[in-house]
């Protein structure tokens, strides 16, 4: 029973992790919480579901379209809002406010365009489970955990082993100096937004397949945000650890304490972390960041 609950928790945490890493990436570079991140995931989920149902595309093409599409939406946000604010040398707070505006806009746009109803992906995988003794692990959970792990390892490789990663790290350490050293900072910022967008797209599709697709789907990013604060804002590894912790915590609270207390305890944890260890588990110094 406890083991089964741990498996449930990890599978919930896996989806939070994909979203949380996107938060962490953008935070580490620009130092603000991109509140529109969840809506990128939501739009990715809609692109995927419409490609499969309305356009009758094969599933794999729909996934590619959704992931790339989410990447472009994320870049679009950067170009239309964040870049202009940075170019004006406005305070970081403005970025966060712009992100909130984008979030609300996309959510309401989705209600108008796609309607407020829940949509469900056609069943690509049969509803089934892999049985290990008395434990059962959902087929979709296994697949989505696998995808999450591959995506996160890929991301880790990009950041630690490639020129792209080096440039991003340089820019996030000090944007002005990086720019002086000949790094095209705007280009790398754009690429980071694209990367974060594709991660959001993947998590949007996985979330949509596992549950349903609806305009408020992006609100799940709030949990991912808490996960990245818990793990340490700006730290990709921290975001993953945080996401898994939140997933497990939520499941265990629902199972052993009370369902009604699930969110309450998660948010209390957030406040406690901010009071006791503002940098989170693996965070960097967060002075001046909003």
């Amino acid at each position: 029973m406890l083991l089964q609950q741990l498996i449930n928790g990890i599978s919930v945490g896996g989806i939070y992790a994909l979203l949380a890493t996107g938060y962490a990436l953008i935070y580490s570079l620009l130092g603000f919480s991109n509140w529109a991140h969840g809506e990128v995931a939501m739009l990715g989920a809609y692109i995927g579901i419409l490609s499969v149902t309305a356009l009758q595309m094969p599933f794999i093409f729909a996934v590619i379209l959704a992931v790339v599409g989410a990447g472009f939406i994320s870049v679009f946000n950067e170009k239309i809002a964040y870049k202009r604010i940075r170019d004006n040398n406005s305070p970081t707070m403005f970025l966060m406010i712009a992100a909130m505006g984008l979030s609300t806009t996309f959510q309401n746009l989705a209600i108008v365009v796609f309607g407020p109803k829940f949509k469900m992906y056609p069943q690509i995988l049969p509803v089934g489970a892999v049985k290990i003794g008395s434990l059962s692990v959902g087929l979709l959970d296994l697949v989505s955990l696998g995808i999450a792990i591959v995506a996160i390892i890929g991301l880790e490789y990009l950041i630690t082993k490639t020129k792209f990663g080096l440039a991003v790290k340089a820019a996030s350490s000090n944007m002005g100096t990086a720019s002086l050293l000949g790094i095209n900072v705007d280009k790398y910022i754009m690429l980071v937004f694209f990367l974060a967008g594709t991660l959001a797209g993947i998590s949007g599709i996985l979330y949509g397949m596992k549950y349903t697709v609806y305009p408020q789907l992006g609100n799940v990013a709030l949990k991912a945000f808490i996960a990245s604060v818990f793990g340490g804002l700006g730290s990709v590894q921290g975001a993953i650890v945080g996401a898994m912790s939140i997933g497990l915590l939520e499941t265990l609270v629902s199972a052993y304490i009370h369902s009604g207390l699930r969110d309450l305890i998660t948010f209390i944890l957030l406040i406690a972390i901010l009071l006791v260890r503002p940098t989170g588990l693996m965070g960097k110094d967060i002075q001046d960041k909003a």
Binding site: M1, Q4, Q5, N8, G9, S11, V12, S134, Y211, T212, E250, T251, L252, S254, A255, H258, S259, G260, R262
Partner: peptide
């Protein structure tokens, strides 16, 4: 009798209590 909330989307914590 297990309790959950609409909108939480993941009911496995509660269902795992019913399963055994």
């Amino acid at each position: 009798i297990v309790e959950a909330q609409s909108g939480q989307n993941d009911f496995r914590a509660q269902l795992s209590k019913i399963a055994p």
